[in-house]
Design a protein around this nucleic acid. Structure first.
Lengths: 169, 169
DNA sequence: TCTTGTCCTGGAGTCAGCTCCAGCATATAA
DNA sequence: TTATATGCTGGAGCTGACTCCAGGACAAGA
């Protein structure tokens, strides 16, 4: 069973142009052509391309994915290299996840901030009277809120975010 | 206490040019100038800019952060709008985190794949004999590996990734 | 035979988010 | 007083990842 570029684009949820762009960029050296020069994709190709899309989602630049693909073509001698490359991206990815979870904690804090301000009708319930500076007790009040609503446990799942308090404001 | 653009750049870990770019883009309307036209940043400004950097880390486009800042300037009437905006970004962010965790599961699988292949010396230990196709039992073998090394629990923390098996290959 | 649909290539255009530069203005230190 | 550091503006340039377009090829159906 083989597929045309249009079918693959449909299947993977990317545009035809994107696939051609990936091909130009050296990501698809394994794709064959038929007698009139059209790309012909196998099931295996589609599997590989899912991997590529996955790496893309993880924020790996196209040029580096190309490196990986090039290593693949060189065979078993590059198995360790490929492993190392993935390990490196795992670390990058972990960092990204941690950053985003951090940001999520911050965002939740801000939501609470605006929720309570909206209920009160004025943002200045959070300010030191007569200023535009945020009251320093706000952090503890938020922690209190998390505790009483039982959300602290949920946040604690974000095990890497030990310092989410530091990121606020 | 006030700070120059260079000090702020240093403090926040971004370039001076980036700060000026943010200013041009309307993200820093609150920053004052001194008598000779240089930007003067207060502690409060730096706090706000941390927020901006945080939103940036979460993948929020500069133009939308500018919208948020503009709402802020309009005062209490926009509290609900600001809350809504954050809520929306919370959802985006959750999606991003889920995607990355998904990719992480995939990456770990691939690492195992290459680790074992490296140990064996050939990638073809994972292939159907005589082909370049991956053996279908590989998924179960990997699950087995996760179980015996007690890593399945760790993966299960990624509560949103119920279908990580689907993403492999 | 003509139309429609899908594909091809090379190359130009777009967009976000910076990054760099020329040319100029202070401030401080030697 | 001169050198060095730091800042300013407007605008050009760059990078990554597409996205679009002109001009052309072929296949199948009406």
């Amino acid at each position: 069973m083989t597929y045309s570029i249009g079918q693959v684009a449909n299947e993977l949820g990317v545009s035809i142009d994107t696939i051609r762009y990936y091909d130009k960029a050296g990501l698809l050296p394994f794709v064959q052509r038929n007698s009139i020069g059209r790309r012909v994709f196998t099931d295996n190709d589609i599997h590989l391309m899912r991997t590529i899309v996955c790496l893309k989602n993880a924020g790996v630049p196209v040029a580096e994915i190309a490196t990986f693909i090039a290593l693949r073509l060189k065979g078993d001698a590059t198995l360790t290299d490929r492993y190392q490359l993935l390990k490196k991206h795992e670390q990058d990815l972990q960092q990204q996840i941690t950053d985003l979870q951090d940001t999520m904690s911050y965002l939740k804090f801000k939501e609470w901030y605006y929720q309570t301000a909206t209920e009160a009708g004025h943002e200045n319930i959070h300010f030191v009277p007569g200023t535009n500076e945020v009251r320093p007790e706000l952090d503890q009040e938020y922690d209190q809120y998390l505790k009483t609503t039982g959300q602290l446990d949920e946040l604690a799942r974000f095990a890497n975010v030990k310092d989410y308090r530091l990121r606020r404001r």
